[in-house]
């Protein structure tokens, strides 16, 4: 569906094609965003609308956003990646270990820009290799994505434990921390990175044959093979992309908190699945767009920030996330039934 839409609007404005790629789901999500914004503002006007609140959201939202986009890409081919949080932590920890070696006695805080670029490179490499492993297991050995990534996720978290011995790695170079806490012209760096990634990925998915082929694999695997798509290779590429994105999120997480640990962000996994599904991604494959996921992550960030302001316990927020996921499933199911 979305492929034909995108093809038709090839001449149209970029924004137009972005909106149309998700259809009315994105419009709905936009409305939900506004609604949450209005309700939260009405309940806690002083706190919610403060620039401080928006700034802090802009710093921590991108990690979750990138993980959700990564999950969406895995779901496009009808798969799922349960190892993203493991990959993210492994990337941060590997980079931290590298900094430790490079800096030696002086301490990682004194390192300059060059080692940080090396660290980013190593982190992303770890992510892409982890994704390659996932892709090979899934397309080469024909293991179900759920079990393959459940197993590799465990291995990645295990490697984090082996590398750190348990406690967190603390003290990253200041240039690394700039990635998570810095600003470019008053805009938080993570937000800039998130927006750039979203635009790039959305172009990749809607304007290139790569994106089109990924969606076709998810829509109808058999037909995709008959049209000459090399399914195995495409799946490996898609998991490598997912792994690289997860590593990016891990880099931002460790840069923002100035620490890396094997069990950071454990609750992000469920949230990434929820946001991907909420953003109009079909877990059975074939449907998904970046704008939808971005809108979903914004609305959920607004929601949880509002709850925190009303002093709702973190556990009850977990409950709300889970209930939200089930509600979305139910609504999608009713809508699907009506469409039929």
């Amino acid at each position: 569906m979305s492929q034909t839409n995108t093809a038709e609007t090839a001449g149209g404005s970029f924004k137009g094609s972005l909106l149309r790629a998700g259809g009315h789901t994105n419009v709905q999500l936009g409305v939900i965003c506004l609604l949450i914004l209005v309700v939260m503002t009405a309940l806690r006007p002083q706190m919610f609308l403060s620039s401080y609140n928006f700034e802090s959201m802009a710093f921590f939202m991108p990690e979750l956003g990138i993980l959700s986009v990564a999950m969406m890409i895995a779901m496009l081919t009808g798969g799922i990646d349960l190892s993203i949080v493991g990959v993210a932590n492994l990337a941060g920890i590997t980079a931290g270990t590298v900094f430790g070696y490079v800096a030696g006695e002086a301490g990682a805080g004194s390192l300059g820009v060059a080692p940080v670029i090396l660290g980013v490179g190593v982190g992303l490499l770890v992510g892409v290799l982890a994704g390659l492993l996932n892709g090979l297991l899934i397309s080469g050995l024909k293991i179900t994505p759920i079990l393959a990534t459940l197993g590799t996720g465990q291995v990645f978290i295990g490697l984090c434990l082996v590398l750190t011995g348990g406690p967190a790695i603390v003290g990253f170079p200041s240039a690394w921390n700039w990635l998570g806490n810095g600003k470019i012209a008053a805009i938080p760096v993570p937000l800039v990175l998130f927006v750039v990634l979203c635009v790039a990925l959305s172009l990749l998915l809607s304007r290139t044959s790569f994106g089109l082929r990924l969606k076709m694999i998810g829509t109808n695997p058999k037909a995709a093979v008959y049209t000459g798509i090399e399914r195995g290779r495409m799946i490996i590429w898609s998991y490598m992309l997912t792994g690289g994105l997860a590593a990016m999120a891990g880099i931002l997480l460790s840069a923002r908190t100035n620490a890396a640990k094997s069990d950071y962000g454990a609750s992000y996994l469920l949230q990434a699945v929820l946001i991907a599904v909420l953003g109009g991604t079909n877990p059975a494959g074939g449907k998904g767009n970046v704008l939808g996921v971005a809108l979903a992550v914004i609305s959920l960030t607004l929601l949880s920030s509002g709850f925190q302001m009303m002093r709702v316990s973190n556990h009850l927020i977990d409950f709300v996330w889970g209930a939200f996921l089930i509600a979305v499933i139910a609504i999608n199911s009713f809508r699907g039934r009506k469409a039929r």
């Binding site: 877990p283 009850l316 977990d318």
Partner: peptide, 28 residues
């Protein structure tokens, strides 16, 4: 009920219900 009625992937449903139940037990 949720899996059968909405014909939804069990993994995603059970991820959701797990979060709901843990959240309620710990929160309430």
């Amino acid at each position: 009920g949720i899996i059968h009625k909405f014909n939804m992937i069990p993994l995603i449903v059970t991820l959701g219900t797990a979060s709901v139940v843990r959240g309620l037990v710990l929160g309430l």
